[in-house]
Design a protein around this nucleic acid. Structure first.
Lengths: 242, 242
DNA sequence: CGAATGTTTGACTGGAGTCAATGAGGGTGG
DNA sequence: CCACCCTCATTGACTCCAGTCAAACATTCG
């Protein structure tokens, strides 16, 4: 029994653009169902052309690519509200894989209906571009991190960004958040080795800039950590939800 | 005297999706003029909300971001056919700056008209998303390069990608291309120091994998260079043009 | 010709990678 | 209930790729 878009828990969060009743109704028609997957389940494959598109409702996951030699680059972490499969939806081929890191609930859309949906409601096309632009924006920032920040700056930057993202979508706050990923995932996201990432985290801990036990990350002083990460505490901009 | 979209030299190239006569006509109405800028001219600024959007017609440029400490990350090279200002167009704020590296000619669109344009022709909204997805796809690949490839692999990858892009849009081919950028630009794009980039290029030269004199880059054996770059010779996928 | 810009080299340094071993929990099956 | 295993976190020792510093060249240009 799927969640009714009308009662979607995400829509009300600050991060997401408000929708009219008609918007909700048309989205509801587009939605074909809900998918629940266990942790570790692959959702989309690089190079594939999935017949289905998704919006993450609960749970978290990873977007990643593999190099020919087996090295993995984590493109981004997937949080509730993120849209999955856009590349397959418009280009016909995914540039990365997506897999669930925790148990996840996903709203499912039919790729074939996407064009019908947009034709009926041109604003959805605009919003699709908007979503893609948000991703592009974030990837540019990530690229800058991996290319220019030191390990210490990169880890600090990443934790700040993740905290702000989760805070804005309402799942966490108060200077701490649940982070179900492993140090290996963070290392692969930042282009660092696991060992060096671990030592960097240890330093941040010993400097009292963060706490990290199990899946709970704490940031006692956001300003201080942001400064280490050469970044600011700008809240993520509002975005649409599909 | 601006180029008529009907006679646009880009549209016919393999890289770009075919357009119907109506598509061209509606694009023509959206286009408000042409802008010619000298090398070195800033076109869009990070953080700004430009009233104008552009499509590069002739010439090349750079997208880049600066870190608080002054380090520069080149997000991507701008080639003919690339759309500039999408983030400002849909999100209201650019995540990077764009500047001309050579003299450039740009088709100019009015940001305020974008929504009108899409409403009148929903397919344009879809194509806008398509363009954004192409960028996202490429940024993911770049991120993987900067995060996981060695300097040698990264330089080889970049030259292969640039060659294929230019070949597909018809400006170069035959195993060589004009590259008006400096080694500094390539270094900043790959997250490498200028010196190390230079030494890596010297190695590729001495191994006869590339030639690079002035603005002419030659790749005598594409397969061989692609192998060094841990990549393949997949041609860029067709994309729309705005 | 001097000044600027960009390329090339050499010498040295150091941040991050690699290798390897130890710890710390959490499952699970006998 | 506990020994064993598996995954993940942690630490130390050592290596090396890439960064930094600095100087020499090459071209172009006013």
């Amino acid at each position: 029994m799927a969640t009714d878009c009308k009662h979607c828990p995400l829509r009300r969060k600050d991060l997401f653009a408000p929708m009219t009743a008609e918007d909700v109704a048309s989205m509801q028609r587009f939605k074909v169902g809900e998918l629940v997957v266990d942790a570790g389940t692959p959702i989309l494959m690089e190079g594939s052309n999935s017949p289905q598109l998704f919006t993450a409702l609960h749970g978290m996951g990873l977007r990643y690519r593999h190099l020919e030699n087996g090295e993995r680059q984590v493109i981004s972490f997937v949080f509730p509200g993120d849209f999955l499969g856009l590349q397959a939806g418009v280009m016909g081929e995914m540039g990365h894989s997506v897999e669930a890191t925790t148990k996840m609930t996903l709203c499912v859309f039919d790729r074939r209906e996407l064009w019908t949906y947009i034709k009926a409601d041109p604003e959805r096309g605009f919003e699709l571009a908007w979503l893609a632009a948000v991703e592009e924006h974030f990837l540019g920032e990530t690229l800058t991190t991996v290319g220019q920040r030191t390990a210490m700056q990169a880890v600090a930057w990443a934790l700040i960004r993740i905290y702000l993202r989760l805070e804005a979508s309402g799942s966490d706050g108060g200077g701490q958040f649940r982070f179900p990923f492993k140090q290996r995932d963070l290392a692969d996201a930042l282009g660092l080795s696991l060992v060096h990432t671990n030592k960097t985290i240890a330093q941040l801990k010993s400097r009292q800039l963060i706490g990290w036990e199990g899946d709970l990350v704490q940031i006692p002083d956001l300003e201080a950590l942001a400064e280490v990460g050469l970044t600011t505490l700008n809240r993520p901009k509002t975005r649409p939800i599909m």
